[in-house]
Amino acid sequence: MDTVLIVEDDYHIAAPVKEFLENAGYKTVWSSTGFEALEDSELHDISIVLLDLMMPDLDGYGFLERFRLKSKVPVIIISAKIAVSDKVKGFELGADDYITKPFSLTELKTRIEYHLSKAAGYQQTENKVINFLGGLEYYPMSSEFYLNGEKLIFTSKEAEILSLLIKNKDKVLSKKDIYEIVWAEKELEGNNTITVHVKSIREKLKEDLKEPTFIETIWGKGYRFIGVRV
């Protein structure tokens, strides 16, 4: 059964959408803020996201930007914003579709079915394992890692951080970005959580800090994964 994440702070919109989709055979999860949605996306096996833009705490654009760093799950924006610039920004950040309010529930269901079908076809073509020079094997579906044939034992957060870096290969992610995506909450000033976790990951990867094979520190900016695929 596919699970739909509804990200909407207005109960009078979320409730009928939730009821309609559940009657149509979907499981639903409802989040009323961007950070709550990031957390729910970690706790549940989400198949597709319905995303409002104007929300408290972290708006839809902020959620989408962070969510796209870790997931390729389809995202349909549902918003009262009708300006072309708003739509363009949504697509640039990785949205798959854009519906303006008010909208038809029947049309919404049709669009959901289309994007789920498209995503299923994409998943069938994804590699089951990704290999890198240096002996690292990464299994995206299970977030398991092997180094020279030996399974690496990471904590759940360490595995999430390394998966996030790999999915954004060669892209610099700040400590703030990593923390807010993995922990789904705002980073507190002076927090050294990411530094500690990355250090542990590097030790398990047996990294040479002077000549890293996998994770490079970009001073003053963050970290990026530089592993070479084979």
Results as ranks from 00 to 15, higher is better:
205 L>N: 04
132 F>K: 09
179 Y>I: 05
127 N>Y: 11
80 A>Y: 01
193 T>A: 14
29 V>D: 01
56 P>T: 06
96 D>I: 02
73 V>Q: 08
96 D>W: 02
173 L>W: 03
45 D>T: 13
200 S>Q: 14
17 V>S: 08
78 I>N: 01
122 Y>G: 00
25 G>I: 02
103 F>P: 09
199 K>Y: 13
6 I>P: 05
192 N>M: 07
190 G>H: 08
39 E>D: 10
181 I>S: 03
29 V>W: 01
184 A>Q: 04
190 G>F: 06
219 W>G: 01
22 E>C: 07
10 D>A: 11
42 E>T: 07
16 P>G: 09
52 D>F: 06
102 P>F: 09
109 K>R: 14
12 H>R: 07
192 N>E: 11
201 I>Q: 08
137 E>C: 13
65 E>N: 13
188 L>H: 07
137 E>K: 15
63 F>C: 04
140 P>C: 11
96 D>C: 10
14 A>C: 08
42 E>L: 13
94 G>E: 07
187 E>V: 10
116 L>D: 07
221 K>T: 06
69 L>T: 04
144 E>P: 00
101 K>R: 15
84 V>F: 08
205 L>M: 04
64 L>H: 01
8 E>C: 09
118 K>Q: 11
143 S>W: 04
84 V>I: 14
145 F>V: 04
207 E>V: 09
18 K>H: 11
